[in-house]
């Protein structure tokens, strides 16, 4: 009877997070890394050997590329005085260069200059996305689905996942783009009408992650089209995704 439902509803309470930009995650959440001190050359060699996904770069000084980082935190656990992972989840950016964290960086910057004007003009109030899982391990897919649930509710900004690419304003790719899925991805891209955005979610999508060198992976698709947003994470937290998209559409 209704009484039971009312009881459940009362316990359910109000679930939505009121402000998605100022929510705070649990302290251990592995978000943006900070480099407190540059490691020595010897330490850098050891860290490079330690990193499972080749995310350490030494051009222009020591840096962690969070587009390649799988957020395993082994480097911070081995050298806690040099590297630490904060619980800052706003790590999405539209410029791949901004994904490299160096000493002294206090946030992941978003590059307003390279945002295509039609993206701001057309998608500010409603962005319908088609998600394509091209070899994802299902964790990013779960998180993207959760971004629309009763807690995060990205629908309040007009962001939604649609079923047909014909209705889509953009394609969201998760997974490293396997060979077996590459043709399907191309067909999906061709089927959605322009102008459209391309968003990569998760380390696997941005750089191939652990599968960058696998023969079963074919990332030629990404060489053809400009990417509008990179959302790092393993998996990318829904707040990372939503904040990234909000920055992209200018909200």
């Amino acid at each position: 009877m209704i009484i039971k439902e009312l009881k459940i509803l009362r316990q359910h309470g109000i679930q939505y997070v009121p402000d998605l930009k100022t929510a705070v995650l649990t302290p251990l959440f592995r978000g943006r890394p900070v480099i407190k001190e540059d490691p020595t050359d010897q330490e850098t060699e050891k860290i490079k050997k330690l990193c499972p996904s080749n995310a350490i770069t030494t051009e222009d000084g020591f840096g962690i590329d969070i587009g390649k980082c799988v957020f395993c935190k082994e480097c911070a656990l081995a050298y806690p005085d040099k590297i630490a992972f904060t619980n800052d989840y706003k790590i999405a950016s539209n410029d791949k260069n901004n994904l490299i964290v160096r000493k002294g960086d206090s946030e992941i910057k978003f590059n307003e200059n390279i945002v295509r004007p039609e993206v701001r003009k057309l998608f500010k109030n409603a962005l319908k996305l088609r998600q394509v899982s091209a070899g994802g391990d299902n964790s990013c897919e779960f998180e993207l689905y959760a971004a629309g649930n009763v807690n995060f509710d990205m629908g309040r900004y007009g962001i939604e996942f649609v079923a047909s690419p014909r209705h889509a304003d953009g394609i969201v790719i998760t997974g490293p783009i396997t060979e077996n899925m590459s043709e399907a991805l191309q067909i999906c891209w061709d089927a959605s009408p322009g102008p459209k955005v391309l968003i990569l979610v998760g380390t696997d999508a941005i750089s191939g992650g652990m599968f960058a060198d696998s023969h079963a992976v074919n990332r030629k698709f990404l060489e053809k089209y400009p990417v509008d947003l990179y959302v790092p994470g393993n998996p990318a937290h829904p707040l990372t995704f939503i904040n990234g998209v909000l920055r992209l559409i200018g909200k």
Binding site: P52, C72, A216
Partner: peptide
């Protein structure tokens, strides 16, 4: 078959055990 990434082959990299842990999770 669409999700095939070649994990079993990648598990044969013997240089870094952390890779194997992350691969199994993936």
């Amino acid at each position: 078959g669409y999700q095939h990434r070649g994990i079993e082959n990648l598990m044969l990299q013997n240089d870094n055990p952390i890779k194997l842990c992350v691969l199994s999770e993936s």
